[in-house]
Design a protein around this nucleic acid. Sequence first.
RNA 1: GUGCCCGUAGCUCAACUGGAUAGAGCACUGCCCUUCUAAGGCAGGGGUUACAGGUUCGAUUCCUGUCGGGCACACCA
Length: 555
Amino acid sequence: MSAVLNFKSHLAHLFAEALRVVAPETQATILIERPKQASHGDYACNLAMQLAKPLRQSPRNIAQALIAALPASDVIEKVEIAGAGFINVFITTAAKQAVVKTVLHAEAEYGRGNIGAGRKVQVEFVSANPTGPLHIGHGRGAAVGDCLCNVLAASGWDVTREFYYNDAGAQIDNLRSSVQLRCQGITPDDPSWPENGYRGDYIADVARSYMAQETVEADDQHITGKGDVHDKEAIRHFAVAYLRREQDQDLRAFRVGFDVFSLESALYSEGKVAATVEKLIASGHTYEQDDALWLRTTDFGDDKDRVMRKTDGGFTYFVPDVAYHLDKWQRGFTRVINEQGADHHSTITRVRAGLQALNVGIPQGWPDYVLHQMVTVLRNGQEVKISKRAGSYVTLRDLIDEVGCDATRYFLAARSPDSQLVFDIDLATSKSNENPVYYIQYAHARIQTVLKQCEGLVFGDANVGLLDSEEEKTLLQQLIDYSEVVETAAHDLAPHLIAFYLKDLAADFHRYYNATRFLVDDEVVKLARLSLCAATAQVIRNGLGLLGVNAPDTM
RNA sequence: GUGCCCGUAGCUCAACUGGAUAGAGCACUGCCCUUCUAAGGCAGGGGUUACAGGUUCGAUUCCUGUCGGGCACACCA
């Protein structure tokens, strides 16, 4: 099992050696890439073209010299010069065939790496205010964040998943008053209903439950409705607990879990906000003006200074945010990634500025952010406007019920967070076979059906040397690529790459399936082909696992 | 007006972070099931990569500008 499978880094080493011989004085980055066309080999290196200028020679001549200096390797079939000076490397089929046994031996471990080396990383995601059910935007955050965590964990990071509740401040007060009005029998169509009050029906549910003195369980607390219309504090407590429970249930249905829940209110009650303010004042980056306390965020790249303490004595929201992130740092997270909607992007500069002002050794540019763009929802060809206050929006729960957890997760995680996402509910439901997630799951189910017909196979005996058809070689290479895809997804914080990879892998398998019969009379051939099938199924399972999507045995 | 993200086939999206002839799915046309799941495969048409410059051996990718879409620009969170 000592076979070389990471051809890319293997070749990079060989070319580095060749570079040392050909141009010992010259610095160049060794880049090994996968050509688009099979005729260009399995891997290509553009080193010769990079060296043309410094060496003042033609790229093709340099390529000759590099090839001559390339150390021998038994995984290389042949090396060619092509085009302007590309060096194309062909890998022996035997070296690729080894992947089958590697996968079957490693099973769920296949594709895992150790770039993270056990270092701690904390990923904060979803972090919805407990003022209503989770909507599709939170769903995108949940899907992307969870998959990102999985990918980081698969790369050797020690991941902590965290959810931050903004359970203090104006929005919560607004929630409380909306519930209180409902308790008093006042509805949103009443003229006295405040303009920015929450209008959704769920507010009435909270009120009913409170008045009925029901008990809700959220996190580790049990809160019972007091039934007193005038007890603002009791209503606030109950409403927050009620909605947290709803969110917890939605997240559980979405198969997303968290290690830590942090409460904004706790930052106040534990004195962390006050302590942060004191540190900021001591740092000398604050000043009083117009009866308010300001932080000179312009010292750290902001375009204007920001108010910390308002004239009314309350803090602006970014103060507890800075306190929260200081807390993360003090908990030992030298790496923190915040997955949020793009509408939060203006906070990045302020939070980072506040942390720099504290001058406690936090590096510039800490923490990292992954911002996902907005999700547009189409229903009946019409855009559904998301407005919590108006009460009209698509909840995550609706999507899970209508579209299914697997398809919803796939849809929301399968695109670059940088681009806006159109979620067409009709497409995802009525024509579910158009959904790519079924295409991938179908490949897995097909394999399982075939394997089920042959009990007691011992793949260790398989002669993988027989796997040399075009379809088989393509599939082998695809299986080899998996580890690299996981590594790239973790490095670039781009979990959607897993989804694209799986679609390609499934396509390669379906093509193989249509071109090849597995259950043939020749037992040796059969065993070899089934071993490749089994390895493919394993990689599909591993990849879908990272996306949090099931790999069913039958469909 | 300022900052950030985006603009690729009719639609939804790729393109290994600067590589070779820009690829998939959906839709459209025609084939392939008495054989392991046709939720599949094969073949075909469809492109001035929004536009204009620039950087270099080479640009969908990087830089500048223009146009278009989204988000954010409070002593709201």
